[in-house]
């Protein structure tokens, strides 16, 4: 696939959970400031691949991995993992705000980094919430619990929290699957705005969503990358029959 300069490059990534193979020889580039969607049926390895991109898979002792992934100029393994996860943030399927105030959710990462000055924290809270299109809805109740927000607001809060530490890449694992269509539309609009500044990789079960918001789409099947191309090409005229069968619903 023709692309802008890649921010991340996966080369021959294979991964096992004990003896179960989850990824087979995945080679693909993630271009800068674009939305890259990963689609495929359950169990195809798409979420596992996403987790390899900020070494979340390191947390599981049963995982064995081969191949390598470069982030900018060097392999992921050469980064300090805390630093890596700051620069490659993640948003999960189910909104997972901390049981704290909206303000404390956003500033949590910064405080861990040692930022204490209130004016600095205030500035980040406002800019992160604005970027996540949530500011106007919560600016008058920043000290209230994040748990009182709606599901869609909670998910945008989680996106704001990921943005607060100024990442370069944002990984999203099914970020709308627990949301209603209105909240989904807001997140999708947000993703399209965010790609001006960030590189986004999104795993989604919703093919229409991939079609609407992504620039490139990768189709995973049975631990393999079957096809990776521009989203227009993938949805109008895919090159592989298995992609065709999956996206037209003639599958399994």
């Amino acid at each position: 696939m023709e692309s802008k300069q890649p921010v991340m490059s996966s080369r021959h990534i294979s991964l096992w959970y004990d003896k179960t193979r989850a990824l087979t020889d995945i080679t693909m580039d993630i271009p800068e400031k674009q939305v890259t969607a990963i689609i495929g049926p359950s169990g195809c390895g798409k979420s596992t691949f996403l987790k390899t991109l900020n070494r979340m898979t390191d947390l599981n002792p049963a995982v064995k991995m081969g191949g390598f992934i470069n982030f900018l100029d060097k392999p992921l393994q050469q980064y300090d993992v805390v630093e890596l996860r700051r620069r490659v943030g993640m948003v999960f399927q189910k909104p997972n705000p901390f049981p704290k105030s909206i303000y404390d959710n956003i500033t949590f990462g910064l405080r861990l980094q040692g930022v204490k000055k209130k004016s600095d924290l205030d500035a980040v809270v406002e800019s992160s919430l604005r970027r996540a299109a949530l500011w106007d809805e919560v600016k008058d109740r920043l000290k209230q619990s994040a748990m009182g927000l709606s599901g869609g607001q909670q998910q945008r809060l989680c996106i704001a929290r990921a943005l607060a530490v100024n990442p370069e890449v944002v990984l999203m694992d099914e970020p709308c699957s627990a949301l209603d269509p209105v909240a989904t539309a807001k997140i999708e609009d947000l993703i399209l705005q965010l790609k001006q500044e960030y590189t986004i990789v999104i795993v989604t079960h919703n093919m229409q969503q991939a079609a609407r918001i992504s620039d490139g789409t990768a189709f995973f099947l049975s631990s393999q990358l079957v096809e990776y191309d521009t989203t227009v090409k993938m949805f109008e005229n895919p090159g592989d029959q298995r992609t065709e069968d999956y996206i037209t619903g003639r599958f399994g």
Binding site: M207, Q208, A211, F235, N237, I247, T248
Partner: peptide, 9 residues
């Protein structure tokens, strides 16, 4: 039905 690929064509 949101047709895709060959169906869309």
């Amino acid at each position: 039905q949101q047709p895709m690929a060959a169906d869309l064509r």
